[in-house]
């Protein structure tokens, strides 16, 4: 912790946040928001929360910026024109925001200081994880073991939330019927141009490495920062890179709609299935230690590590499929015929 660095990064974050709201051009706002996410990632790395920083870098600065771009591409760059003379609603909004901010500031006074040793969490909860994680689960990365084992329920429903978000995007945007397909041209006609050899070549060279790195992140999440969410997002991002640098059709050729939805389901199913397998073997739901009965050559401790790996793989598959499906739906206006 270097407080000068923290303070300067925090100042930049606040400036970026204001700029995101103030800027009139939505594309610029998306770019500034990407910068904001990246600065958040820096701040979290500074504070020692490397896993969170990794998630922020891959989700916030990476994929969500691209999704904003896709949304801008399908709608418009301009902020909606605000009608003047709505002073009352503006005043109510200002008062509500000020009140909420005031309440938050008052509540903040009751919070313990950052890294305070004498809070209940630091006195009773954290020491257990810090001292017992390696002994209990044979996983050096405490964050992964807390996420995937001690708090396995939370992560399972987080995965379900992501899956539901993907389903919602498909349900709202996807247009299957002929009569739904109005052929209004999009607001931006991007010139087809020529196939750019340099971009395509480099993308083709990079994509396998990106995917390999994603698999490493998934499989090595026990020992280093990372895990299912980050790896899944990076896998999805590699497909988005293919879609941007080559063609929309290329990605559809590799990963068509049926496979996409199927993989999203399979991912959640792997997670819940491992939980049910534990039930069948006579333990509690998501208590991986019983998996040692079916896994060869593992004791109860190593089985927990393997169980975590299994659910991380499930999370990665689900997240990858959902990221790709959200991108494809937004960018093609739900028609899956052409896009960015």
């Amino acid at each position: 912790m270097i407080w000068q660095l923290d303070l300067s990064v925090l100042t930049l974050i606040v400036i970026c946040a204001f700029a995101t709201i103030m800027v009139k051009d939505l594309l610029s706002a998306a770019i500034i928001f990407g910068a904001y996410s990246f600065l958040m990632c820096l701040l979290w790395t500074e504070m020692g929360a490397v896993d969170v920083a990794f998630t922020e870098a891959s989700v916030g600065a990476g994929v969500s910026t691209v999704l904003f771009f896709a949304a801008v591409y399908q709608t418009t760059r301009r902020v909606g024109i605000r009608k003047s003379g709505r002073m009352l609603s503006k005043a109510i909004g200002l008062v509500a925001a000020l009140l909420t901010g005031l309440l938050l500031i008052i509540a903040e006074a009751d919070f313990p200081g950052f890294g305070d040793l004498f809070t209940p969490a630091s006195l009773h909860v954290s020491p257990y994880y810090i001292t017992q994680t390696l002994h209990d689960t044979n996983v050096p990365n405490m964050v992964t073991s807390v996420l995937a084992d001690y708090r396995g329920f939370d992560t399972m429903f987080e995965t379900a939330v992501i899956f539901t978000a993907g389903l919602a995007v498909i349900a709202i945007l996807r247009r299957l019927k002929k009569e739904d397909r109005c052929d209004i041209p999009g607001p931006y006609v991007i010139s087809e141009g020529y196939p750019d050899t340099i971009i395509r070549f480099v993308a083709r060279q990079l994509v396998p490495f990106i995917q390999l790195f994603a698999l490493y992140v998934v499989a090595h999440g026990h020992h280093s920062p990372g895990g299912g969410f980050q790896g899944g997002v990076i896998l999805g991002a590699s497909f988005i890179l293919l879609a941007i640098s080559f063609d929309f059709k290329v990605v559809l050729g590799i990963m068509n709609e049926r496979w996409n939805i199927l993989l999203g389901n399979i991912g959640v199913l792997i997670y819940a299935g491992i939980g049910f397998l534990c039930l069948l073997l006579g333990a509690n739901f998501l208590d991986y230690s019983m998996l040692s009965k079916v896994l060869p050559a593992t004791d109860k401790i190593m089985a927990r590590s393997h169980g975590m790996l299994g659910i991380e793989i499930g999370v990665a598959i689900a997240v990858m499929a959902i990221v790709i499906s959200i991108y494809l739906n937004i960018v093609s206006h739900g028609k899956y015929d052409k896009g960015l």
Binding site: D196, I198, I199, V202, A203, Q205, L206, F209
Partner: peptide, 13 residues
């Protein structure tokens, strides 16, 4: 190595 590959390509794009 990856910066050497990706950064000029992004600039080019």
């Amino acid at each position: 190595v990856f910066i050497f590959m990706a950064s000029p390509t992004a600039t080019h794009a």
